[in-house]
Design a protein around this nucleic acid. Structure first.
Length: 790
DNA sequence: TCAATCCGTATC
DNA sequence: ATACGGATTGAC
């Protein structure tokens, strides 16, 4: 028994281990007897590969990428073989693999490297990311043999390591060239190799001239006769050419509103990529958009060349489709956020639609954002990237500013010809005379637009999500109730380091949710009644459960003596009324017109071109055949009143998503003050100026994407302890902690300049590791660049 | 001097 | 989590 162990490299075994009864010591595999395994363990300080002995019985099957069961710390756990090597660095006895779960090599080298990069970026563990990346196995689906016709078409198998892995550091990429056979060429490997920075850091990076080609190139070749969706954009055709020619264009695409449809454009981009011999991944916010894109891909590509991956498929079907991608039977994928990890080989394009939709943020640790994962993936593999939407996020704008991506925008005249006509109706707009419409709180402008639209087709009414917003308005005059107390301001306390760019942070008052004027860590709240700016806080008021007095959702203070500045009333009412109730009221205002609703409990994908009143919540608007004849956007104040950093960006995104469904030139009435820049942006269909202003504002406030931010949330003691134990990188600044809820939980924010993100994530990971190793009782949730920064 | 127990640490 | 090694303690 010990004789066979003599083959092992390191036998400093002092005692002869008594072997388990009935089981001899395993005979090692004849070559590469060591498997490096990514073990599915949740502990941050154990987030590295572990070596196991490959018994000869598993020599053939324990290939890189397969699922295995291993004994780890006395328990049987799942894992993935990352690579097979000759020797181990481990100076102890190697435990043997317990079992190869299946021969299917589900973890490709590319995805292993990507998952490592995502974990590093978000201060999370590889195991957590792999859980997101690889769907649960379904044995029956695996057993179904691939159809021969499809397998011969694309001989792609798990892709061996990309050279880029080496640049990323301790990546468990399967680098052994012995591990796999001949490599199908990875386009863009050359581009990936020398690049070490993350996409977002491009500005701070060494000049890698990421935008090498395409969009700046020569304009359209004159010969393409049929007008495609990209012909409306001056840079569109050259973008498609670059995709077709295997290059790496990265574009932020401001989609035109209207019937031509974003899904068609995306499908054409996918077709160009496939034509160039590469694969594509398309990520959209929800199932309705998957259905739209799926239909367009089928129309443009024909049957069987792509798959749709959504959460609601069920485990078997989901795994079956995913395997078709893994096995190279299809090379194009459209799906919701989990599809960012779809194992498409020889990736040529990653695309994301409407990257401002918060559905793109993963809800499971480490909370990666689809746009960021795709950008990392594109960067690592040398794939092209397309970030599309009617509006532009500050993050996408940042990618343009750092020259990582180029804009694709239509000419002003084209935009004007396709955009709807938008009319604002301010808060004080005259209510409709019609009794029922008055009941539905519909201004006469809106009522007229709907009535006129209904003469020729379906009309859309966008209402706030039910239960979405506990904001208040004056019961008497409906003026929004806002905080009348003097403004508060957060400043760094003496002693806390205030590095130059963040010395003063106007507007950070929003970060404080508690109104005690007490000191919290390095920050304190102070009143500055005499300072420049508004004489009162103006935060939206809300009601907390059980209390009768309203509190400010920005500064947290209770304002028992609130009086309406408009009419002097002192009674408040909830502003938000759900879709159903609004639908009922509108139905009475327009008897004889069918009312259809689309919302949380029942999303309609499409409605026919017939006259109908379609009431929908944001994100659930059905596409109307031929476009809507008119629309009314009712949730302006609900959106803008939100105590959210992204409130205006989000409002514009939702408005344009609804308005884009209209026929060109149709009328939109938005219940919002025309003086607001965000209303102006909708009126002029100019999301770009708005996004640029937004980015500038974030830079001024020191918020992402201008900086990299992380939040720590947990019990007050735990958060403080973790802050103490974190070796923060240079230039890091701590805000808070401040209370976040009534359970005494607190949240601290840490920000670093762009480019310091990696160091910050590493520091936080280290600190969580220390806490986990010590078995610290309360968990501190770490979130890098979370959406809800308030 | 030895065995039972506690504690900290690594987990291959 | 759990198993292990080393330190500690208590009794002979």
């Amino acid at each position: 028994m010990t004789d066979s162990n003599a083959l092992l490299p390191l036998d400093a075994v002092r005692r002869v281990e008594p072997s388990k009864p009935g089981k001899g010591a395993p005979v090692p595999a004849p070559s590469r007897p060591v498997a490096r395994v990514a073990v599915d363990n949740p502990l941050p300080h154990l987030d590295r590969p572990f070596d196991y002995l490959v018994p000869v019985t598993m020599h053939e099957t324990a290939e890189p990428g397969v699922r295995v069961r291993v004994r780890f710390a006395g328990q049987l756990v799942d894992g993935f073989v990352l690579e097979r090597v000759e020797e181990s660095d481990h100076t102890g006895k190697l435990t043997a693999l317990e079992r190869v779960v299946s021969g299917e090599r589900v973890l490709t080298g590319e995805i292993a490297g990507l998952a490592r990069a995502v974990a590093d970026r978000y201060a999370g563990t590889l195991a957590d990311v792999l859980r997101l990346a690889i769907p649960p196995r379904h044995a029956r689906a695996e057993a179904n043999p691939p159809r021969p016709a499809e397998t011969t078409a694309a001989p792609t198998e798990p892709v061996p390591s990309t050279p880029g892995d080496a640049a990323t550091g301790p990546v468990p990429g399967m680098s052994g060239d012995a591990a796999t056979g001949p490599v199908p060429g990875m386009p863009g490997d050359a581009a990936t190799g020398p690049v070490s920075g993350q996409p977002g850091d491009a500005a701070a990076d060494t000049p890698t001239s990421p935008v090498t080609d395409t969009t700046g190139g020569t304009p359209v070749p004159a010969d393409n006769a049929p007008a495609g969706p990209w012909d409306d954009y001056p840079m569109g055709p050259s973008f498609l050419d670059a995709l077709r020619n295997g290059r790496t264009p990265r574009a932020v695409w401001s989609a035109l509103p209207g019937a031509k449809g974003w899904a068609w454009a995306v499908a054409e981009a996918v077709r160009a990529t496939l034509d160039g011999g590469r694969g594509a991944v398309v990520v959209v916010p929800d199932g309705k958009d998957v259905a739209l894109a799926d239909a367009e891909l089928t129309r443009v590509l024909g049957d069987g060349r792509h798959v749709a991956l959504t959460a609601d498929l069920g485990p078997a079907e989901r795994y079956r489709r995913w395997l078709r991608v893994l096995r190279g039977q299809v090379r194009a994928v459209v799906g919701t956020r989990a599809a960012v990890f779809a194992p498409v080989a020889a990736l040529g394009l990653v695309a994301i639609w409407d990257d401002g939709d918060d559905l793109h943020a993963e809800r499971l640790a480490p909370y990666p954002h689809a746009r960021e994962v795709l950008a990392l993936r594109a960067h690592r593999t040398g794939a092209a990237m397309l970030i599309g939407g009617y509006t532009r996020t500050a993050e996408a704008t940042q990618l343009i500013a750092s020259r990582w991506a180029r804009p694709i925008v239509a000419a002003r005249t084209t935009i004007r010809s396709l955009a709807p006509r938008v009319h604002p109706a301010g808060e004080d707009a005259e209510l409709a005379k019609d009794q029922a419409a008055r009941q539905a709180r519909l201004p006469s402008l809106a009522w007229r637009a709907l009535r006129q639209g209904l003469e020729s087709g379906p009309v859309l009414v966008q209402v706030p999500r039910r239960g979405y917003l506990p904001a208040l308005a004056c019961q008497n005059c409906r003026a929004p109730a806002r905080c009348a107390l003097p403004p508060t301001r957060l400043s760094t306390a003496p002693g806390a380091e205030a590095s130059e760019p963040y010395a003063d942070i106007p507007g950070l008052a929003m970060a404080a949710t508690a109104g005690r004027g007490t000191k919290h860590g390095g920050l304190r709240l102070e009143s500055e009644p005499g300072s420049a700016g508004p004489s009162s806080c103006h935060g939206p008021l809300g009601l907390r459960g059980g209390h009768s007095a309203p509190y400010c959702r920005w500064c947290g203070r209770v304002d028992a003596g609130w009086r309406c500045p408009n009419c002097g009333g002192h009674r408040l009412r909830a502003v938000v009324v759900g879709a159903r109730r609004t639908a009922e009221e509108l139905g009475r205002a327009f008897p004889s017109v069918p009312v259809r609703t689309s919302g949380r409990d029942g999303v309609l994908a499409t409605v026919p071109a017939t006259r109908a009143l379609v009431v929908a919540t944001p994100g659930a608007e059905p596409v109307a055949e031929g476009g809507y004849a008119a629309a009314v956007l009712l949730d302006a104040w609900a959106l803008l009143g939100r105590p959210d950093l992204r409130a205006t960006e989000e409002a514009l995104r939702r408005w344009t998503n609804a308005a884009a469904l209209l026929r060109p030139g149709a009328e939109v009435v938005v219940l919002g003050d025309a003086a607001l820049p965000v209303v102006q942006a909708l009126l002029r269909w100019d999301p770009i100026t708005h996004a640029e202003r937004e980015l500038a504002e974030r830079a001024e406030l020191g918020f992402p994407p201008a900086v990299r931010m992380a939040t720590l949330t947990g019990s007050a003691a735990a958060v403080r302890q973790m802050l103490d134990e974190t070796r923060l990188p240079d230039g890091a600044q701590v805000l808070g902690p401040v209370p976040v809820d009534e359970a005494g939980r607190e949240r601290a924010m840490i920000r670093v300049p762009r480019g310091g993100g990696g160091a910050l994530a590493a520091a936080l990971k280290g600190a969580s590791g220390v806490r986990a190793a010590r078995k610290a009782p309360d968990v501190v949730r770490v979130s890098v660049d979370p959406l809800d920064l308030i």
